[in-house]
Amino acid sequence: MKFKSRKDTFFRVFIFVFSGLLLGIIFSRIFFAGKYEFLWIDILLLVVVALLIWLYFGTKYELTQSELKYQSGPISGKIEIDEINEIIKGKSLWSGLKPATARNGLIIKYGKYDEIYISPKTNDRFVKKILELNENIKITIN
Rank of each mutant, 00 (worst) to 15 (best):
F3N: 03
F3S: 05
S5P: 00
T9L: 15
T9R: 15
T9G: 07
F10Q: 04
F11Q: 08
V13Q: 11
I15E: 05
V17H: 11
G20D: 08
L21K: 06
G24I: 03
G24M: 00
G24D: 02
G24Q: 06
G24A: 06
G24E: 02
S28A: 11
S28N: 15
R29Y: 14
R29D: 14
R29T: 07
F32L: 08
F32S: 08
K35N: 11
Y36V: 02
L39N: 12
L39I: 02
L39D: 12
I41Y: 15
I41E: 10
D42I: 00
I43F: 14
L44N: 01
L44F: 15
L45M: 13
L45E: 10
V47T: 09
V47K: 09
V47D: 02
V48M: 08
V49N: 06
A50M: 09
L51S: 04
W54P: 00
W54K: 07
Y56E: 01
F57T: 06
G58N: 09
G58D: 08
G58C: 04
G58V: 05
K60H: 07
Y61A: 06
Y61V: 03
Y61P: 02
Y61K: 08
E62S: 12
L63Q: 10
L63S: 01
Q65Y: 14
S66W: 13
S66M: 04
S66I: 04
E67N: 13
K69Y: 09
K69I: 03
K69C: 01
Y70D: 02
S72R: 05
P74N: 13
I75S: 10
S76I: 01
K78H: 07
K78R: 12
I79A: 09
E80R: 13
E80C: 06
I81D: 06
I81H: 11
D82N: 09
I84N: 05
N85A: 06
I87Y: 10
I87R: 05
I88E: 09
I88L: 07
I88S: 09
I88V: 15
I88T: 13
S92E: 09
L93I: 00
W94V: 00
S95G: 11
S95I: 07
G96V: 06
K98M: 10
K98Q: 12
P99R: 01
P99E: 02
P99A: 01
A100Q: 05
T101M: 05
R103M: 05
N104D: 14
L106P: 03
I107M: 09
K109Q: 08
G111L: 01
G111R: 00
G111I: 02
G111H: 05
K112Y: 15
K112S: 14
Y117C: 02
I118N: 11
I118W: 15
S119I: 00
K121S: 14
K121A: 12
T122G: 12
D124K: 13
R125G: 03
V127T: 03
K129Q: 12
L131D: 04
L131A: 01
E132C: 02
E132S: 11
E132W: 06
L133T: 05
N134G: 07
E135V: 01
N136L: 03
N136E: 13
K138L: 11
K138G: 02
I139A: 06
T140K: 15
I141W: 14
N142T: 04
